[in-house]
Nucleic acid binder design. Structure first.
Lengths: 237, 237
DNA sequence: ACAGACATTATGTGCAGACATAATAACAAT
DNA sequence: ATTGTTATTATGTCTGCACATAATGTCTGT
């Protein structure tokens, strides 16, 4: 009885993926090792090459395999796990927890941005930017402090928008399509002002998200969200 | 000249995806709205249905579309962006920045875990767990403090492993295949001890990752990584 | 009116075959 | 040795077809 003979044909890409994963985990296919090519596998497993392709492509996306044309497919040497985070609007995040969302505009106006913001917004040196600060609340308790800069060249309509009624977060999502962006997660120590706004002791460690989004080569907006103490972001993998 | 006639056939799934994205962004397809089915689209765009399927499936994965059998495909009402983070081994993370990685085992031994750890490890109440603390360094400067609990029932080999030479992070990755896990990101205020280990002032805000991994229904390990001040995790979207 | 059987429909997936593309290896010419 | 050309190979993708599956609507008998 050959080990490689198809016991029972696996003719679904999920089954093929499971089998491949099994071989990786059992070290039948070792890290760095070249695995049989799609044609061979499809024959061995009794299915079409497209089915094998779908399975292996999926595993490559998940970081288990490295695939290169002609070079073939090999088991990833350093399995880089990919965690996917859902970045939703703050309102949804709060309402999803069954809490009441509310929002308070703290300030809004044209200002000359500080150096670090100017660098990222890529605007002309003397260009003023729309600066907005606001507080998001869950069940009337401070949830996250939003500090946002909007590029008026990219979004002139933002100058006349009413950010009392709708947070810039939501307004931008609805009115300005965007192509890409970058996100960074970090921690910071609460300053005196931040502590007051978030109703926590100064010096507290706070979770921070910095995000920039662009479209058509222009930076649209840049925002820093500082969350209340105890906040944590969670995901499965 | 009809608007729906194929100007130039798009016979690659990327092109179809671009066209679909364009229609979503231009609000030709509005949020919540049902879009034409695959058969119609394939005819309109002059390609096979499988090609349209690939494109739309991809967009659904990215969160732009909601698809349900029979119900059809509609534009996502609340565009939930999905950011994917690469979770690699700390050593690679550091070496990837061109810095020298080093590692110091601080403590190792069987202990009765505190309540919160016991709950997550799901072990018997009186079961002792392998407790390891260690420090990861970049260019000889503290980078992250690792506080790990390992379930000896799930990984008996870990009891005799040499964690002086290899960090538990890497040892586990190589020796124990895992099926799933959960990750949480948060911030904390540096305690006296943490400040000493990470060589920073106490009270500093520090970035924290909590991770638990399981396999075959058993929790394998649970780890908390506390990073040096200034650390941030970055990704594109 | 209502429950259960049935038909309809859109997505999900499988197949075989074909060509495209990128990376490599082998070979030739300088 | 080095460069340029060519053949080879494995993955990437498209096509046209088929059937599976799940959700919805419709029809029917009581």
């Amino acid at each position: 009885m050959s080990d490689t003979a198809a016991r029972s044909d696996m003719n679904s890409w999920q089954a093929v993926q499971e089998e491949a994963l099994r071989r990786i985990r059992s070290r039948q296919w070792r890290p760095g090792e070249l695995i049989p090519n799609e044609a061979e596998l499809s024959q061995e497993l009794g299915c079409a090459r497209a089915t094998v392709n779908r399975a292996l492509r999926n595993l490559a996306e998940a970081g288990f395999l490295d695939r290169r044309r002609k070079a073939g497919t090999r088991v990833a040497l350093h399995p880089v796990r990919k965690a996917t985070l859902d970045i939703s609007m703050i309102r949804q995040e709060i309402e999803g927890k069954g809490q009441a969302y509310s929002y308070l505009l703290l300030s809004s106006g044209l200002e000359s941005p500080p150096l670090d913001v100017r660098v990222r917004l890529q605007g002309p040196a003397d260009q003023q930017q729309l600066h907005i600060t606001a507080l998001h609340m869950a069940d009337r308790r401070p949830y996250a402090y939003e500090d946002r800069w909007i590029n008026p060249q990219a979004v002139p309509e933002a100058m006349t928008a009413d950010f009392e009624a709708q947070s810039p977060n939501e307004w931008l999502l609805v009115h300005v399509p965007f192509e890409g962006g970058s996100i960074a997660f970090s921690a910071k120590t609460a300053s005196q002002m931040e502590a007051e706004i978030l109703a926590c002791p100064p010096g507290e460690g706070l979770f921070v998200i910095d995000r920039a989004t662009w479209s058509k080569g222009q930076v649209i907006t840049q925002v820093r969200l500082i969350f209340h103490p105890g906040y944590h972001m969670h995901t499965e993998l």
